[in-house]
Design a binder for these strands. Sequence first.
DNA 1: GCGACAG
DNA 2: ATCTTGTCGC
Length: 244
Amino acid sequence: MGAEALAEEQLELAAAADAVLAVNPWRWPASGEPVPLLGGCFVAFAFGQAGPGHAGDGAWAAAITVFPPSGRSFHTEDEVVVAGSAGAAYVPGLLALREGPLLAAAIGALRRGPDLLLVDATGRDHPRGAGMALHLGAVLGIATIGVTRRPLLAEGPSPVQLRGASSPLLLGGLEVARWICTRSGASPVVAHAGWRTDPGTAAEIVMAASTPAARAPVPLREARRVARESRAVAEGRKRATFRA
DNA sequence: GCGACAG
DNA sequence: ATCTTGTCGC
């Protein structure tokens, strides 16, 4: 798939996301209903390539599931890493071209797919209304939210640095994401509406899946750690082979 | 021309 | 995203 095809698909996904959210929004289970499995994913790229990189860059995609979806202590249910390569260089608005296929493969390799997936990317905060977090959810049929350090296009003043504080991020007059402070004294992260989720739900999930001690939600921290661990092992092996 | 611009 | 040392704070 090329940039034009992706851009076209993103426009369709944005419309589909509105329709699905209207009739089938993700919601927290009522008491007695099964507790959802939470997922997280992350791509670590090979060392040495700063900047946007290139198609073919070495990459390790990790996907993990944690349980329960909220609380003080989480435990990892499953974790998997898929080694592969970047589909393209990074271009704002086209992140799915670079990371999408590898992330989908990693999530597909989990024994049991998550009910709710956290992705390091935006959702509705996107030039065509369909960032990679939303895209991945639509393709995999999993409710998703995005979590990033900063917005892509949306704007809004950040909240006070007190855990739980939040403020809206607007794009085209609509709220598409929310600043949310997960750790007092630390700058906030952005919780993005994704597939079957709105900004308020995204912010709730980020809070529920976060610990007061760390800025990033547990599933994303763990996925990042696991992906980097695999990269370290692979790069170490490569070096050993080279020296041998 | 220059800076901005998810990861 | 990735490259990076020490350093300040709870």
